[in-house]
Every structure is written in structure tokens, then in C-alpha cells.
Design a protein around this nucleic acid. Structure first.
Lengths: 246, 246
DNA sequence: GTCGTTATGTTCGATAGCGCACAGATGGCG
DNA sequence: CGCCATCTGTGCGCTATCGAACATAACGAC
């Protein structure tokens, strides 16, 4: 029943500076990088890389959200972390590992700029601001992963859903998520029914409204209250490490 | 009933090269670093740093094991990762964050070499092999964290105990762990009774024997079979990233 | 408008892990 | 040798989550 409006921005074209990391780079580095950046559209569900793949590019999301997911032998999965316009996908390139054990999958469709790994590393290997910025982002990512582990251990599905919605919301321009409960369940590594139940409670509490693959947050303060501490911990640490990106 | 023998090695003195990362550095870097390294004894339970502390040193364990632990507001905890002679404690220094949201606590007493953060960064900032090695180790650590998150989500206490024992075993010179079930429970973020039960099963299966704060693994292959895939994933990826450290 | 597909809602029994309470065992120390 | 702190074992009721099966609802294509 919520009147979801499709906001297809008329000619809203992306710029690299909408990614906080790119925006934070000094002008000379931006000038070197910009011509090498390629704008790509990331449709929902697209796999940027699979476990073990050599990473050919790194991606700087603009209004897309990408989840890093581990998929187990039996097909069950769990989200490790989530990346939006505050970060980049492809930290393994920076670390020198070239591949990771996780999958990167688009959780919310949108644009991203991508850069071939080689050219990314060329800039990193000037050992300047690029390297240092990327390292700080890496620590923010590590914090998020650590907190995911904690959250998986100790918190209820209800709380985790709140955390997950907040993390997504922070990376989107609106309060509307295009996302089925089934997909959320995959990310959280729980049953779809568990998400249905948790979403039902949030709806009754007047925090969200939703319908067939869309969710709108209508009371964010309440959502933050209902979330476990994990969201706040990650947010605070990310703001500390990357203060410009607030 | 197991005849635990206290193996206090007579004059078994530590050398920096017993830490795999230090050993893997080229000779010139080793020569620069060695005089700055300080051998320290890490007693069980010692906190190397608390959440939010500025990291004054980085630590290279020799025969000690250190756990990175997140402690929640209500006092409950969860292990994020574990570090032994394959790695170092203080990745946040490398990343430029200076502090982390987790606590580093000694899980198994032993020696470590420590290096003031400033001197560590002086070497890192030569942008040579030191930096690249540390980054690769960081990726291994990230993999371990990610797998911890997955394991917390999907696996039973029994399986997690197996994983945990294997991770510890890999970092120790013997098959004996000095470790109460209570402490293991803290690390895994579960009840002590849960660990008692799981340990009982392993004992019945003839995989371990134990008594009052000590555990001996007597059938490691079986332990690996009984563990979830998480152990193998981390092991394999660590070996890939740091092949010398096998 | 109808139909078919996909998303969401609901129920039910099974179970893993929790919190609590207390019993027993072990080993260090006086 | 015996005491006592500490570590380990066990039982009980409770709850969250699971797995499975099925009911209803919403949208999209025709």
C-alpha cells in the first residue's frame, strides 16, 4: 500500500566524485585517474567476481551497493560486508592477493566507476595519498567484517535486519530499497521466513512499509534504536577513519 | 588421566626468525629491524591493547597465541581472529588507523618480539618488501575474519570447537593446549557448558583428552574431519598468500 | 481482465543453544 | 593429608531459529 515512486532521475548523470574515496583524493591524483575510470551499470544480482577469481578491476560505487558474500559448499551463504559509495570493491588487489575467498554481488542496482587493477596499482605504487587512503578504507572494511562476526554470534534476526537496513540506507540516496525478503535472507544467512517475521514486526512498529520487493524506511531513528550496537560501532569507526565521507 | 608433561624447554631461547613474517623478510630489512626488536613474555590473559587504545607496539609472536576479541556492551564477547607465529598483532598501525574496536588478549602464554609502532612504520614507509609482506598477511587475516563470521552464522558449537582447536594447534609447537573450557567459551562467544558438552563428544570419539585447563589433541586427522570447512578455507588461503609460512 | 509467476504470510514439530542451579572432580597449597 | 578454589559435568525448562509444507497476495504479460 505504500505509494512507491520510481524515481528515474531525468539525466542524473554520475560523476566520480560521488564516490567518497575518489572525491577525497588530491586533485593531481584525480586528474591522473579520471580518464582511466569507466562508468558501468551494475544490475541487481550481477556478480563482479567469484570466489578465487583474479580481480581484473576495482569498482568505486556511485549509487550501487555491492555485498561481499561467502558461499558455503552446501550453497548456504553469509554476508561478510557491504560496500557503497563510501568505498571500493577489490581490496584484495591492494593487499596483493589478487583474489579472495568471497563473492562480490550487486545488492542494489546502480552505477559504479571501475578501474583496471593494473592501473589502480600503478597509482597505489606511487606510495602517496592513494595508498594511504585505500589502507584506511581497508581498516574500515575490517571493522565491518569483525562486527559482522560478532553480530552473527550474538544478535537476533530482528536486530540484524535493523543493522542491515541501516547499512544499506547509508549507501543510498533515498529511503527506498529494492530488495526481496528472500535476498535479504541470503545476505543475513537466515531463512526467508525469519526475515518475513522480522519485517512484519518492524511494520507493526511503524518503522518500515514494504511490498513485493521494495522496502521503505519511514522511521529511521526508531530503526537505530531497535538495532544492535553493531551498526553504531561500524558507523563510528568508519567516520573516524574516513571523516570526509560523512 | 592424560599424563600431561610440562615441557619447560631448558634454555630454549627465542629468535626473531621463529616468527614466519620476520623470517620471510630479506636480509637487509632483518638487519635493520633486529636491533629494534624487544623480546617480551606474554602471560596468559595479558591484554596487549584494549578497544580504542592507541597501539604503541606491534607484536610478532614466537610461541604465544593472541586472540583478537570484540567485547560487547553487556560483556559478552566473540573472537574475531587469532594470531600466532605466522603473523603480527597491530595491523591497524599498518592501515593508519592507530587503534581498533577490538581487544588483543593472550590466549596461550609464550614469547613475542615487539617493535614500537613508529619504527615499524619507518620500515613500512620505505615501501619495499616489508610493506608488501604485511599487506599479504593482512589479507590472510581478513580471510580469517570473514570465515569467522560465516562460521558463527552456520556451524554448531561442536564444529566450531574443532576449527578453534585446529587454529590453535597450528600455532603451537606441541599438541597440548593450556586452556580452560571457560576461556574457550569466551573466545567462541558461547556458554561454558556448550564447550563442556562438545569437548565431551570429542573425548568419547578419541580425538582429544583433557583435564583441568589442559587439552591434548591425539587424533588430528579426525579433528579435521569433524571440523567445518571454515578451517580448511582459512588454511588454504593463508598458505596461498604466505607460502613460505607453511 | 486473466493467468501465471513470484513474493509474502502462517503454521507446526524439531532442535540447538541459553540461563540457571547445583553436583562432582581435580589439583595446588598449607 | 586434607582443604578449598577452580574446573568440569549434568539436568531442566525456555526460546529462537530451523525445515518443510502450504496459503494468500501482488504484479506483469498477454
Amino acid at each position: 500500500m505504500p505509494p512507491f515512486i520510481e524515481l528515474d532521475m531525468p539525466e542524473m548523470h554520475a560523476t566520480p566524485q560521488q564516490n567518497h574515496l575518489l572525491a577525497a583524493l588530491p586533485a593531481d591524483i584525480q586528474n591522473r585517474l579520471l580518464p582511466k575510470l569507466e562508468l558501468v551499470q551494475l544490475p541487481l544480482g550481477k556478480v563482479l567476481y567469484e570466489s578465487g577469481d583474479t580481480l581484473r578491476h576495482v569498482y568505486f560505487p556511485i549509487d550501487s551497493i555491492v555485498s561481499l558474500l561467502y558461499v558455503m559448499e552446501n550453497g548456504a551463504s553469509a554476508e561478510i560486508s557491504v560496500v557503497g559509495n563510501e568505498g571500493l570493491i577489490g581490496v584484495a588487489v591492494l593487499m596483493g592477493g589478487e583474489s579472495t575467498t568471497s563473492r562480490a554481488i550487486v545488492q542494489s542496482a546502480g552505477d559504479a566507476y571501475r578501474l583496471p587493477s593494473r592501473q589502480f596499482m600503478e597509482e597505489v605504487n606511487r606510495y602517496g595519498e592513494m595508498l594511504h587512503l585505500m589502507l584506511r578504507y581497508t581498516q574500515a572494511l575490517i571493522t565491518q567484517m569483525a562486527q559482522t562476526a560478532v553480530c552473527n554470534r550474538h544478535h537476533s534476526i530482528d536486530q540484524q535486519l535493523c543493522r542491515w537496513l541501516l547499512l544499506s540506507l547509508d549507501r543510498l540516496p533515498t529511503n527506498d530499497l529494492v530488495m526481496t525478503q528472500e535476498l535479504i535472507a541470503n545476505m543475513l544467512g537466515v531463512r526467508r521466513e525469519g526475515v518475513t517475521e522480522a519485517a512484519g514486526k518492524l511494520h507493526k512498529a511503524g518503522v518500515i512499509e514494504y511490498s513485493r520487493g521494495r522496502i521503505r524506511v519511514i522511521d529511521r531513528p526508531r530503526l537505530e534504536q531497535m538495532s544492535c550496537e553493531c551498526y553504531a560501532v561500524v558507523k563510528k569507526e568508519t567516520d573516524r577513519l574516513l571523516p570526509f565521507a560523512v
